[in-house]
Amino acid sequence: MCVDCHNQQQRPSPNPPAAAAAAPPTLFPPHAGNHAPLPTVQRAAIVVLDKQGLPRTDIAQQAGTSLPTVRHWLRHYEQKHDVADEPRRGRPRCTDEATDINVAVVARVEPHQSTPKQVKRKLDVDASPRTVRRRLDEAGLYGRVEREEHTLDENDLRRRLSFAHGYAHWTAADWERVIISDEKHFTLGRHGQQYVQRPSGEAYNPLYTHTANENPTMVTIWGCFAAQEIGQAEIFEGDLNSKLYGRILEGNLKPTYRKFFPAGQWYFLQDNDPSHTSGLAQSWFHRNGVTVLDFPPWSPDLNPIENVWPVLQRAVEQHNASDEAELEAAIQAEWEALSPDFLAKLAHSMPKRLAEVIAHNGHKTHY
């Protein structure tokens, strides 16, 4: 290479090449996927961008979708002059709008006598019970097992509302200074529905049946907890009376509140069992300076420990205890294994429970 050519190569070009143009910004985020329909606004954008002369790869990038999707909607627009979905094909409904309304009305007026077969018979619906079931589901009326519950009278509702309004200003932190208590019975043996593998027609063969135990072994646990953790508990046999309850309070509640609240105000929540409200119990509370919350009757939804018992019950049943000693050991082990986070969540739920009682005018809540 001569000197002139070498110098020419080393000099910067007077007109450097222009930088590549930045890609235009996308108009939409990437589409959710193949199974989600493309929103109508993105379909319309594909058509508009195509009419502006953009390459289809750029259209796909700006519309946030794939190139095959762009081709599909451009072809769809050429044929239909629209980007709306095609009418869905399928079997036509065998009930008209008036029938659907009547089905829902009957079920709402008589919720206890409105199985699909009953509704079909009452309205003489020209459709199967299965179709009636679907119409009820569409109306938000689902078939559920009816629950047995005490009917609250006006006095019960008033006391529940009074309790809810009285403590409505308490925060979750306030409820952290409350010890919550109750009792739960446990029996030895089988519980709930049991399944057996048997041939057809042998339902009552003694090999595949069991005899109900009329006098099952039963023990009861009294327990308490606060937002911090579980408190002490005691397992006992027989019925709870005021004398036994006083001994339980002395041996279990006192060491629990001394551990949880060595100083400062704290409160005690219990239900209205006669042994809880007896003169002996009230005297014990007075002597020990315990402030008992004025808990309303028939209000398990306002006592968070009621949500502990089903958890404890299921855990104890997994032990398959064969005698009373094993049953008591299982109860004690599972009581001590209760999660502190679970207990704290229950204690902190009290403000929401009270708010729901107020919203339901004193009636029961989902808790």
Rank of each mutant, 00 (worst) to 15 (best):
T211C: 10
A330T: 11
L123H: 05
F261N: 00
A63E: 15
R198L: 12
H185Q: 07
R43V: 04
Y208A: 13
P274E: 11
C2E: 14
Y167E: 09
G231P: 09
F295E: 05
S200P: 06
I331D: 04
T65H: 15
T40G: 07
H319L: 07
A212V: 12
P116Y: 05
P297V: 04
R314S: 04
Q61Y: 13
A359V: 15
E326T: 07
P16H: 07
R198E: 07
R121M: 01
D85V: 03
P297N: 03
A23G: 06
L346E: 06
S242A: 15
E250F: 10
Q265Y: 02
L302S: 00
E154Q: 14
E154G: 14
Q232K: 00
D341T: 12
H150Y: 04
L293M: 13
D124E: 10
N303A: 02
L27Y: 02
R160Y: 01
A22K: 02
S299L: 02
A203K: 07
K51N: 00
Y195I: 08
H210M: 07
K243C: 08
F225V: 13
R108C: 14
I235S: 14
I179G: 02
G251A: 09
H72F: 14
A344E: 06
V103S: 03
R177N: 09
R130E: 13
P30T: 05
A173E: 14
K254I: 15
F28A: 11
P274M: 11
N215M: 03
Q9R: 13
L152Q: 13
P14R: 01
R158S: 11
V132L: 13
E306A: 03
Q270H: 15
A60H: 12
V125H: 13
Q232A: 00
A355R: 08
D273Q: 00
E336V: 14
E149T: 08
A32G: 02
R11L: 15
S13H: 14
R353H: 08
P206Y: 01
W170K: 10
A359P: 14
N34R: 11
H72R: 07
Y204C: 12
